[in-house]
Computed example of a mutant assay.
Amino acid sequence: MKPSTRRKAAPAQPAMVSVTLMAEHEHLGSVLQPGTAISVHPDTAQWLEAMGVAAPAPSTAQSAPQPVNTKD
């Protein structure tokens, strides 16, 4: 009888991160303009930021609404 073998699970892939391009950049075969947001591997994001090509994308988290003063 063959001993049971377990398959090793594939290593977890890191979550992609969003960056905003600060300069024209070729990504996946397309030339993208400054201001374009792209999703890349965290190591690539760090490299793009170090080269001055990209900046972290603004957070899309919603902040708590501010109270409105209606007594004016």
Rank of each mutant, 00 (worst) to 15 (best):
His41Leu: 13
Ala57His: 09
Thr44Phe: 05
Pro65Phe: 00
Gln33Glu: 15
Ala57Phe: 10
Ser39Tyr: 12
Ala54Met: 06
Val68Met: 13
Glu26Asn: 07
Pro56Thr: 11
Thr70Glu: 05
Thr36Met: 08
Ala61Ser: 07
Met16Ala: 13
Pro58Trp: 06
Ala10Gly: 13
Glu24Met: 02
Gly52Asp: 04
Thr44Ser: 15
Val19Tyr: 01
Ala37Phe: 09
Ala45Asp: 02
Ser30Ile: 01
Ala23Met: 07
Ile38Asp: 11
Val40Thr: 05
Ala10Glu: 14
Glu24His: 08
Thr5Leu: 14
Leu21Tyr: 05
Met16Gly: 09
Val53Lys: 02
Thr60Met: 14
Met1His: 12
Ala55Trp: 10
Met16Lys: 15
Lys71Tyr: 04
Trp47Gln: 15
Arg7Pro: 15
Leu28Arg: 15
Pro14Arg: 07
His25Pro: 00
Ala23Phe: 09
Leu48Tyr: 08
Asp43Thr: 07
Ala37Cys: 13
Val19Gln: 00
Gly35His: 00
Met22Leu: 12
Gln62Pro: 04
Ala50Val: 12
Met1Glu: 15
Asp72Arg: 06
Lys2His: 14
Pro42Phe: 06
Glu24Thr: 10
Leu48Gly: 04
Pro65Ala: 09
Lys8Arg: 13
Met51Val: 04
Gln66Pro: 08
Val19Met: 00
Gln13Asp: 02
Val53Ile: 11
Gln46Asp: 13
Ser4Val: 14
Gln62Ile: 00
Ser18Thr: 02
Ala23Asn: 12
Val17Trp: 01
Ala37Asn: 14
Ala9Tyr: 11
Leu32Pro: 07
Pro3Asn: 15
Leu48Glu: 03
Ala50Trp: 11
Gly35Leu: 01
Asn69Ile: 08
Ala61Tyr: 07
Ala9His: 09
Ala61Arg: 05
Ala54Arg: 06
Pro58Ile: 01
Glu26Thr: 12
Leu48Asp: 02
Pro14Gln: 08
Pro3Ile: 14
Val31Lys: 04
Pro58Cys: 00
Ser4Trp: 15
Thr36Ser: 08
Glu24Gln: 12
Gln62Tyr: 02
Lys2Glu: 14
Trp47Gly: 11
Val31Ala: 04
Val40Leu: 02
Pro67Ala: 01
His25Gly: 03
Pro65Leu: 03
Pro58Met: 01
Leu21Ile: 06
Gly35Ser: 00
Val19Arg: 00
Ala54Val: 07
Ser59Ile: 04
Ala9Ile: 05
Val17Gln: 11
Leu32Thr: 05
Ala54Trp: 10
Val53Cys: 03
Pro11Tyr: 11
His27Glu: 05
Pro42Glu: 08
Thr5Glu: 10
Asp72Pro: 12
Ala10Ile: 03
Ala55Asn: 08
Pro56Lys: 11
Gly52Lys: 11
